[in-house]
Design a protein around this nucleic acid. Structure first.
Lengths: 336, 336
DNA sequence: GCTTTTTGTGCAAACGTTTGTATTTTTGTG
DNA sequence: CACAAAAATACAAACGTTTGCACAAAAAGC
C-alpha cells in the first residue's frame, strides 16, 4: 500500500508534477479548470502531502516547538491547550518538549527542535536558566521565538505575561481589607521575574495602606508544600507573628494550611491565607483556598497568535499582559 | 549564518559526502582514522544533522506520535513523562496530539501524524471512538502502533494496560472486610473496556464473599463530580440504601463525598467511599480518599519500550498488564 | 496579419541526506 | 613481485516536493 505522490496525480491527470504542486497550493497561475481536476483526482486517490519533503524543499516547516518546564502542571498543560486551539486550525502542528526545570535539558530541547527544523519556538524558561545563549541562537537563526510566563525581557521576541503584579496586589489588598493586621509573604524563587513581580505587588499594597514593611515575615524561595509547612511553623514562633500570609504559589499555601491545622490555628478566624495560581485542588481542600487565577488558556492563545504573526513576517516585538483575577474562598474573611 | 551540511564537512576533510554520512553513522566500512577525522571536524564546524532530509531519504523518522484524550489529566501527563523518559535517551522525539475525547479529532490527529511521517504511534482511545479504521490504516501502512489504557484488543499491536480488574477487586474486597454491608458501584462509561473491567472486579469480590448482587445500587456512566453528587443523593433515597460505594473514578468519588457531607452522613463511620486513579486531590480533600493507584509513569515506560521494540523490527504482539495498588485513606475504615 | 502581452504549463534544479554499486587502494599470500 | 582478496572510498541515484525560468499558446493591440 504505497503512498500516493504528486507525480501519481500528475500521471493520472496528464499534467506535470510542478503543475500539480501549484494547483494544490491554489496558485492562480494554473487555470481554474486544471486546479479543479487536480483537486478532485487528489481526493479520489487519497493524496496526502508529504510534509517532510515539502519542509526539506522550503527549508522550514509548519511544526512549532514548545518548551515547558513540566507538562503535568495545571498551568502549563492549559497553556498548551490554548496554543493548540490556535495553531491546529491554522495548519500548524505542535511538538512539545519538557525541560524538567533543568537548564541542560532546556538547551537540549531547543537543539532538538532546531534539528527538526521547527518553524518557531514557544518557551517558558526553567527555574535554573540564567544563561540565554540558546535563546539568542534561535533568534539569530531567524527562527521566530515567543516567550511566556517565565521570560527574559532582554531577548528580542514577543512575550506573553501574567499580570503577576496586579494579582499579588489584589490578593494582599484583600487580606488587609478583610481585617488582618500583620501580613507576611511566602515568596517564590527570586531568580524568576514572575515571583519578583508578585513580591512587588505585595509591597505596593502594603505601601498604599500605609503598613510598614517587616522583613522578618517575608520568606524567600518557598514554593513547595513542605517548604510552606516548615515556614509557617517557623513564622509563628517569632515574637511579631503574622496573622495572615500571601503565598506566591498554591502549593506553599497548602503547606501553610497543613501547619496551621497542626497548631490548631483557626482559618480564617485567626489567620488568613491567600495563594496564587488557582490550582485545581485549591477549591477542594478544607478550607477552600482564596487564590489568584491566571488565565493559562488565554496565555496560550495569545502566544500562539503572536507566533503566527511572526511566522507571517508581521513581527513586531511586543509584550502582552494577561489579567489575573482574585478568587475569594474560605481561607480568608470575606468582609472587605 | 548558514547551516553546515555533510558536504561542507566533506569539502573540509577531503572525502565525499557519502563517506561523511557513513562516518557519522559509525559505519565500520569507513576506516577508524577517517571516522575520527570526520567526527572532529563535524564538532569543530558545529554540524547538526538535518533530520528532515534524513527522514525524507529513509522514508521514516525518529519522531514518535502520541495521541491522548487530554494532556492536562494527571494520568495522561504522567504517562507522557514515562514515554519521554525512554524515548528521548534513545534518540527519538515525541509529538503529542490531543483528541479531546472526540473521534473526529482523533482521526485528524492520526492523519496529521502520518502526514508527518512519524515512525510510530502510541495511543489511548477517546471515549467516543467506536470505529477503528484509522487504527487499522496505521497498522496496514506498516507503522508500529502501541495502545495503552483505553485500547481495542482487536487491533494487531502491542498493548499496555492497567490491572483494572484487580484494582477494583481489591477496592471492593477492602470495603467488605472493613465491615460495610451493602456496597454499591458507580461505574464509568460502559463503552470503555477499562471501566468494564473495574465492574468485573467489583463483581468478583462480591461473589467471592457470597454477597448477593443488587442491580439497584449499580449506576452506570457516572464519571464526573456532578454525576457522583446526584447519584449518591438518589441512591440514599432508595429503600435498600448502600452503606458504601466503590467508584470507578476519583472525580465521581469526590461528588459522592460532596453529597454525603450535605446529608450529614459521616465518613467513614456511616459510609465508606473508595475511588479509582489516585488523582492528586485525593489526598488533599477531607476526608482523604481511599483509592486505587495506577502506575501511569510505568505504563508510559512500558509503552515506549514496546514501541522501540517494534521500531527495531523485534515486534511481537503482546499485552502487558501493569499492577495497580490500593491506597487506604480516611474515607473507609481501616480495620480489615 | 504581425508583434506584443498575457496566461497556462513544462523543465529542471534544488533541499541534505542515505545507500547500492562501482572503483580505487591496501593488505595478504604464494 | 604478481595477483587475488579485503578494505576503504567514491559515484550517483533516490526520497517528494517547490520554484525560477523557459516556452508555447491564446489574447490583445496596432
Amino acid at each position: 500500500m504505497k503512498r500516493v505522490t504528486i507525480s501519481d496525480i500528475a500521471r493520472e491527470t496528464g499534467v506535470t508534477p510542478s503543475t500539480v504542486s501549484r494547483a494544490l497550493a491554489g496558485n492562480t497561475r494554473v487555470s481554474l479548470k486544471t486546479r479543479e481536476l487536480v483537486a478532485q483526482k487528489a481526493k479520489e486517490m487519497g493524496y496526502r502531502q508529504n510534509v517532510i519533503a515539502a519542509s526539506l524543499r522550503k527549508g522550514k516547516s509548519d511544526t512549532i516547538g514548545m518548551v515547558v518546564p513540566r507538562i503535568n502542571r495545571h498551568f502549563f498543560s492549559n497553556v498548551i491547550s490554548g496554543v493548540e486551539e490556535i495553531l491546529n486550525p491554522a495548519g500548524y502542528t505542535l511538538v512539545i518538549a519538557q525541560s524538567g526545570e533543568s537548564y541542560l535539558k532546556e538547551q537540549k530541547a531547543i537543539d532538538m527542535l532546531m534539528a527538526n527544523h521547527v518553524g518557531g519556538i514557544i518557551i517558558s524558561l526553567s527555574v535554573q536558566t540564567n544563561d540565554y545563549d540558546h535563546l539568542n541562537k534561535v533568534v539569530s537563526r531567524g527562527i521566530p521565538l515567543v516567550q511566556f510566563d517565565r521570560v527574559n525581557p532582554n531577548i528580542q521576541c514577543s512575550r506573553v505575561l501574567n499580570d503577576n503584579f496586579n494579582g499579588a496586589y489584589l490578593a494582599t489588598k484583600h487580606l488587609i481589607k478583610a481585617g488582618y493586621k500583620k501580613i507576611g509573604h511566602l515568596a517564590g524563587a527570586t531568580e524568576l521575574e514572575a515571583y519578583r513581580e508578585r513580591y512587588q505587588g505585595y509591597l505596593k499594597a502594603l505601601d498604599e495602606e500605609g503598613i510598614e514593611l517587616d522583613q522578618e515575615i517575608i520568606f524567600k524561595n518557598v514554593i513547595t508544600r513542605e517548604a510552606g509547612y516548615h515556614t509557617i511553623l517557623r513564622a509563628l514562633k517569632k515574637e511579631e507573628r503574622p496573622d495572615a500570609v500571601f503565598c506566591a504559589g498554591d502549593y506553599a499555601a497548602l503547606g501553610v494550611l497543613d501547619g496551621l491545622k497542626e497548631l490548631h490555628v483557626k482559618v480564617p478566624e485567626e489567620f488568613g491565607v491567600v495563594g496564587f495560581a488557582n490550582e485545581p485542588f485549591s477549591e477542594l481542600i478544607h478550607p477552600t483556598l482564596t487564590t489568584v487565577e491566571q488565565n493559562a488558556f488565554e496565555i496560550g492563545t495569545r502566544a500562539a497568535t503572536a507566533m503566527i504573526k511572526s511566522l507571517e513576517g508581521k513581527y513586531t516585538e511586543e509584550e502582552e499582559v494577561i489579567p489575573t483575577r482574585l478568587i475569594v474562598r474560605d481561607s480568608s474573611w470575606k468582609n472587605d
